[in-house]
């Protein structure tokens, strides 16, 4: 698939001298969902704002659908929909009017059927004539999404779309993202919620301190960086790990009745066989056995901590 969004050595230094982006390079394929993870102030919003035209880049080159965002900004922006992090809406305007306005702003003719479809999909149809100020926080976020979709974008930026919304809306949002993906829309999502990235993204980018620490296929990232843990539940608790069993990565947990062994799935020798043999040799009786893969959250925290150190 061709690159729908291409970012080359993008840098942004604000007037005060703060360097928000330090040479970000990223290619995003058409129809792909990429989640950008990073702590507050990592540069996620600056990256999105720059691509969308809200912030002027200091240097670097960005193209959307092959169109340069500075020299061919009309064509580039026509492809983009943006759901901002802040809930910014005209409080006295009616829902349907503000969505129509967004479509008009992109130079599209009125299309009431499409607006109705979008509003229905976002459960806003019944509220179409309500003033924005009458809506709940979650509903306002839905309006922001409706506005972003009103001109049928091919690339959708979702800047922390589920921050502070209830579980129902979050799941609903994931469903909408899945629908959009099925339509071939490229989606760039920033989030604090790791499970969100885990649930919907094809690739994960980790950004911190204005630098893209890594971008990788989600499953590969999980496999490559993921550590697995094996929990051996014993029938009888131990006071300490028997010397015959001692090896790196092994610890005694619970009330002395759980042997926890952490191992690298990519290593040539994981050490599981030796551990199980040693347990049998020591005459320990097992009650249960389970394995668990480290979550994306743990991977993310590790990466950011490494970046800081």
């Amino acid at each position: 698939m061709s690159a729908m969004l291409s970012i080359r050595d993008l840098r942004k230094t604000y007037d005060g001298g703060f360097q928000a982006l330090k040479g970000v390079t990223l290619e995003i394929r058409e129809g792909e969902i990429i989640a950008l993870l990073g702590p507050n102030g990592a540069g996620k919003t600056t990256l999105i704002s720059t691509v969308c035209g809200i912030t002027t880049p200091t240097s670097g080159k960005v193209t959307v659908g092959g169109h340069d965002i500075l020299t061919d900004f009309r064509a580039a922006r026509a492809l983009i929909g943006l759901v901002p992090q802040e809930v910014s809406l005209e409080p006295f305007e009616k829902v349907i009017k503000t969505v129509r306005f967004s479509r008009g702003l992109f130079g599209h003719r009125r299309d009431e059927a499409l607006i109705e479809k979008i509003l229905r999909r976002l459960s806003l149809w019944d509220k179409r004539n309500a003033q924005i100020k009458e809506l709940s926080g979650g509903m306002k976020r839905r309006v922001l999404i409706a506005k972003a979709l009103a001109h049928e974008p091919r690339v959708l930026f979702l800047d922390e779309p589920t921050a502070g919304v209830d579980v129902e809306l979050r799941k609903d949002m994931w469903g909408i993202v899945a629908d959009l993906k099925a339509d071939g829309v490229t989606i760039i999502l920033t989030t604090h919620y790791i499970e969100e990235a885990e649930a919907i993204a094809d690739r994960i980018g980790v950004i911190n301190g204005g630098e893209l620490l890594l971008v990788e296929d989600k499953d590969r990232l999980m496999t490559r960086l993921g550590k697995k843990r094996i929990e051996v539940h014993l029938s009888e608790p131990l006071d300490a790990i028997p010397p015959a069993l001692a090896q790196p990565g092994l610890s005694l947990e619970g009330e002395g009745d759980v042997l926890m062994f952490e191992y690298d799935t990519q290593a040539e020798r994981t050490g599981i066989t030796k551990l199980l043999n040693d347990i049998a040799g020591a005459g320990l009786v097992l009650r249960d056995l389970s394995t668990r893969q480290s979550s994306l959250e743990e991977i993310f925290v590790d990466l950011v901590t490494e970046g800081r150190s």
Partner: peptide
Amino acid sequence: YFPKFIGTIYELLSAPVT
């Protein structure tokens, strides 16, 4: 000024308008 104040100016800035 109002779009600047309430933040809706993002929409104008990110739209394909001069």
